[in-house]
Amino acid sequence: MPIEINTPDKLEYQFFPASGGVFTFKVRSPKDAHIALAPGPQEGTPMFEIFIGGWENSKSVIRKDRQKPDVVEIPTAGILDAGEFRGFWVRWYDNVITVGHAGDAAAFLSYDAVDLFPVNYVGICTGWGATGTWMLDEPSSPTAPSAPVMGFSNPIGNGPGCWVPAANGETPPGAMQGGFDSSEQLYIARARHEGDLIPGKLHPSHGVVYVAWGGGEHGHNEYEVLCEGGGLWVPVEAGNIPPGAFPAGETSEGEPLFIGRVTHDGTVTVGKVQPSHGCCYIPYGGEELMYKEFEIYVAK
């Protein structure tokens, strides 16, 4: 449920918890919508700032540690509007910060931070003669619910997580975020297809889990979602499966399948790792795409 935040003409950030490597929002302002990425809920160093519609709504920049010159600057005349909401997303993944319009996969601002700090909080503010109204996704609670939510039973499990049945785009509490597509968060899930149990991506707004099989992308409206996991993503080289990789499915012949993800066409997409093939297959754009370089989900 989106929450509405009003920011005064005051260059002072209001901070909110960040998770999943993406921040989506809508803002109505004549100019100077500012976003901060920070390790804690306060201004300081290190910190990255993104100014959308600065300099009288003529350009947008990324600034590091409040220092000039800005690390990225592009002209964006008329990007904000005082009379209507404009949607945007900000992502931080693999040390790269990107900013784009809602509904667009491609970014209009991008910066390789090389060694990005953990982004735990996002701040918003307006200034330089502008006020703003923001629509944000409500921050999730840091603790698991104590009672069933949305008709689901509480997840039970530890380590890499546990699988919770769901359908038609439902996302159980504690669902594990695996990537993003445009401005939407994707989750780790699995479904049966042609005798295989295949890990893939839950796309909530589409109402299905997509899995890769036989050269194609296949959607299933009944699936299981990985919940309450404590694993991490590990880069894979030369197809070597690291110790602790979490088996999430299997082929009809009994070969284990693992959870992988790759960056593709401005998205981070979850798919299946098949050890005998030495690669990760992702479902995307109706096709099954193969990558030799990918990340794999490993239990702590």
Rank of each mutant, 00 (worst) to 15 (best):
A77N: 10
W128E: 11
T76H: 01
A36I: 12
D104I: 03
P75Q: 15
I50G: 06
P30Y: 11
R91K: 14
G87V: 02
G54L: 03
F108K: 07
D65R: 09
F25P: 00
F117N: 08
L80E: 01
D112V: 01
E43P: 03
H34G: 00
D81K: 10
V61Q: 11
P118M: 04
A77R: 14
R91H: 04
H101K: 15
A82L: 08
V27Y: 09
T133F: 00
W134F: 14
V61R: 11
W134Y: 14
F117K: 10
W55N: 15
V71N: 04
G83E: 15
Y121I: 00
I50H: 06
I79R: 06
G100I: 04
A107F: 12
G21E: 13
G129C: 03
P69T: 00
V61A: 10
A82R: 14
V22R: 15
S58C: 00
A107H: 15
D115A: 15
D94P: 05
G100W: 07
Q67G: 02
V96C: 03
G44K: 07
L136K: 11
G53K: 10
G132F: 07
E138M: 12
W92M: 04
G54D: 04
D104S: 09
F25V: 01
R63C: 07
D104W: 06
E73Y: 00
Y121F: 09
P75G: 11
V90M: 02
A113M: 02
D81I: 05
N57L: 09
G87I: 00
F117W: 11
P75F: 12
P39Y: 04
W134V: 09
G20C: 08
E138R: 14
F51L: 14
P41N: 13
A36E: 12
A113S: 06
L109S: 08
D65V: 07
I35S: 04
I79Q: 09
Q42P: 00
D32I: 03
P69H: 02
M135F: 06
V99C: 03
V119T: 11
A36Y: 12
I62W: 02
V114T: 13
V71M: 02
D112R: 01
D32C: 09
D115M: 12
I62T: 01
S58F: 01
S60T: 04
K68D: 15
I62L: 03
W134A: 12
A77M: 09
K59H: 13
P30E: 13
E138Y: 05
R66K: 11
D137V: 04
P69Q: 04
K59T: 02
A113E: 01
P69F: 05
E138D: 09
E84L: 10
L116S: 05
A33I: 05
F48L: 13
I50E: 07
V27D: 07
I35P: 05
W89P: 09
W134K: 10
F51W: 14
R91L: 02
V22L: 14
F88D: 09
Y93F: 10
G83D: 15
R66W: 11
S19G: 08
Y121C: 03
I124V: 14
L80G: 03
M135A: 11
N95P: 01
F117A: 10
V122S: 04
D70K: 01
G53S: 08
A102F: 06
T133M: 10
Y111L: 05
T126P: 07
V99T: 02
I79V: 15
H34W: 13
M47S: 00
T98S: 15
N57A: 09
V99A: 06
F117R: 11
L80N: 01
